[in-house]
Amino acid sequence: MSLLRLPRSAVRSRPSGRKAPSRSLVAATRETLALVLDEDAPLLDSDRDIEDVILRLRGHLMELGHASLGRPRPELEAALAAARKVAEMDVPTQYLDVRKHLRTFATAVATVIAELVAAGLVCGHSVECPPATAQDCEAAKIRVHRPEIGCSELCNGVLIFEDTGCLLPTGGIVEPRRPLPREAVTT
């Protein structure tokens, strides 16, 4: 059985002890994609280099599939299915055909990342936002600003309120840190 083709029952549930993938997963995947898709990237000359990039892309695809657990979206499921289909194809033997296959595979993985970002499951910024568990979690960029209700959702899932309080994705609360009134400061 292919590792990329696990039964749906195995993919849908995550063992309770397993943590969600780190946000740096996207950065590592983008580095691998840059080897294939960037125009300035050096050409992969040897069969060993090409095999290595294909294996890395397959590994990234498996990890990205785990990042999608919990919130199924039709667009994301379709992107994952398309990328898995390309991953399962036999790698051609001719150099130009291999390059074409590699670009197709990398493009499919890039589409999966775009869908994960659209679903709000991973950070899509070039400098990744701090995770919700970090002490500086409020430094994340705003994903959705809702001034009519006085809060904003940050990229890492934290809800930050106008009174400077926060609600963490885990349900934790960060108390508001309002400045002291003038009378309290002068006395």
Score class of each variant (00 low, 15 high):
V53P: 12
I54Y: 05
I54R: 13
L55S: 15
L55M: 15
H60A: 04
H60Y: 04
E63Q: 14
E63W: 08
E63L: 15
L64Y: 00
G65S: 12
H66V: 08
A67L: 03
A67S: 09
L69Q: 09
L69F: 02
L69E: 05
L69C: 07
R71V: 10
P72M: 12
P72T: 02
P72Q: 07
P72A: 03
P72H: 04
R73K: 10
P74F: 09
P74Q: 14
E75G: 05
L76T: 01
L76Y: 02
E77K: 08
E77G: 02
E77N: 07
A78R: 11
A79G: 12
A82S: 13
A83D: 01
A83T: 01
A83E: 02
A83W: 04
R84L: 05
R84E: 13
V86Y: 08
V86I: 14
A87P: 10
A87C: 09
D90N: 10
D90T: 11
T93D: 09
T93K: 10
Q94H: 13
Q94Y: 09
L96F: 05
D97K: 06
D97M: 04
D97S: 05
V98L: 11
R99D: 01
K100I: 03
H101M: 10
H101Q: 14
H101F: 13
L102C: 06
L102W: 07
R103K: 15
T104P: 00
F105C: 02
F105H: 10
T107F: 04
T107A: 12
T107R: 12
A108D: 06
V109T: 07
V109C: 04
A110F: 01
A110R: 14
A110G: 09
A110V: 01
I113R: 00
A114L: 05
A114Q: 12
A114N: 13
A114R: 15
E115P: 01
L116K: 02
L116G: 04
A118V: 00
A118H: 03
A119E: 11
A119S: 12
A119F: 03
G120W: 00
G120L: 06
L121Q: 07
L121W: 04
L121K: 05
V122H: 01
H125E: 09
H125I: 00
S126D: 13
S126E: 14
V127E: 14
V127Y: 10
V127I: 14
E128F: 08
E128C: 07
C129L: 08
C129W: 04
P131H: 05
P131L: 08
A132W: 11
A132Y: 13
T133I: 02
T133L: 06
T133Y: 08
Q135E: 14
Q135G: 15
Q135M: 11
D136M: 10
C137S: 12
E138F: 15
E138A: 14
A139C: 06
A140K: 05
K141H: 15
K141W: 02
K141Q: 09
I142M: 06
I142E: 12
R143A: 11
H145G: 03
R146T: 15
P147S: 06
P147R: 07
P147V: 09
E148T: 13
E148P: 01
I149Y: 14
G150I: 12
G150R: 09
G150Y: 02
C151G: 04
C151E: 13
S152Y: 02
S152L: 02
E153D: 08
E153T: 11
L154R: 05
C155K: 03
C155N: 05
C155D: 09
N156E: 09
V158A: 11
V158G: 02
F161T: 07
F161P: 00
F161K: 13
E162F: 11
D163P: 07
